[in-house]
C-alpha cells in the first residue's frame, strides 16, 4: 500500500506492506535506527516516537496509521540546531549510560514537557514511567529533565 506522511520535517511517500510495524519501517526501510526495539510489546518505551507531537510506541503501530501524520524520530528532533535542549540536558546531566533507552526516553521527556512545562520531580518520574532504563536508576534522567526546564526558563 501507498502512504504519505511527514517524517522529520520532510514529506515522504512510500509503498509498504500493509502489515509492517512502524518500528520496522523506520529501522529496516528508512535506516532510522535511532528508534530502538527492546520488548516488542509496548512494555518498555524504547521505540517511542512522536506522532503529531505525542509520544507513541512504534512497535505497536502499523505503517498505515502514519497516513497524513507528522512523525518525529530521535534523528529529527533537533532539526538543524545541533541538539534539542532535552538532548543537551541528557548529555550534561549524565543521563546517558548504555544509551539504548535514551532516544525513547528523550522523546517521552519532550512529550511530557509539551504537556507540562514545569513538572515536579514526582511528575517527571510519573511522566517517564512508561520508559524502562536498566542502567541509570533514573535519577540523572530526572535531573536532566529538570535541567532542560530551567534552561528553557533561562
Amino acid at each position: 500500500m501507498k502512504i504519505n506522511f511527514i517524517l522529520n520535517g520532510r514529506e515522504i511517500e512510500l509503498t509498504v506492506p500493509s502489515d509492517i510495524r512502524v518500528v520496522d519501517l523506520l529501522r529496516e526501510e528508512l535506516d532510522l535506527t535511532g528508534t530502538k526495539e527492546s520488548c516488542g510489546s509496548g512494555e518498555c518505551g524504547a521505540c517511542t516516537i512522536l506522532v503529531d507531537g505525542q509520544s507513541r510506541l512504534s512497535c505497536l503501530m502499523l505503517a498505515a496509521q502514519l497516513q497524513g501524520r507528522e512523525v518525529t524520530t530521535i534523528e529529527g528532533l533537533a532539526g538543524n540546531e545541533g541538539r534539542h535542549p532535552v538532548q543537551e540536558a541528557f548529555v550534561q546531566a549524565g543521563a546517558v549510560q548504555c544509551g539504548f533507552c535514551t532516544p525513547g526516553m528523550v522523546l517521552a521527556a519532550v512529550d511530557l514537557l509539551g504537556h507540562r512545562p514545569d513538572p515536579s520531580r514526582a511528575e517527571i518520574r510519573e511522566g517517564l514511567s512508561g520508559n524502562l532504563c536498566r542502567c541509570t536508576g533514573y535519577q540523572k534522567i530526572v535531573d536532566a529533565v529538570e535541567m532542560a526546564v530551567h534552561r528553557e526558563k533561562g
Binding site: 535511532g34 541538539r83 538532548q87 548529555v91 549524565g94 546517558v96 544509551g99 535514551t102
Partner: peptide
C-alpha cells in the same frame, strides 16, 4: 561522557 553525544542523537 563523549558517547552521550552520539547516543542522544540516535
Amino acid at each position: 561522557r563523549t558517547d552521550a553525544l552520539t547516543k542522544v542523537s540516535g
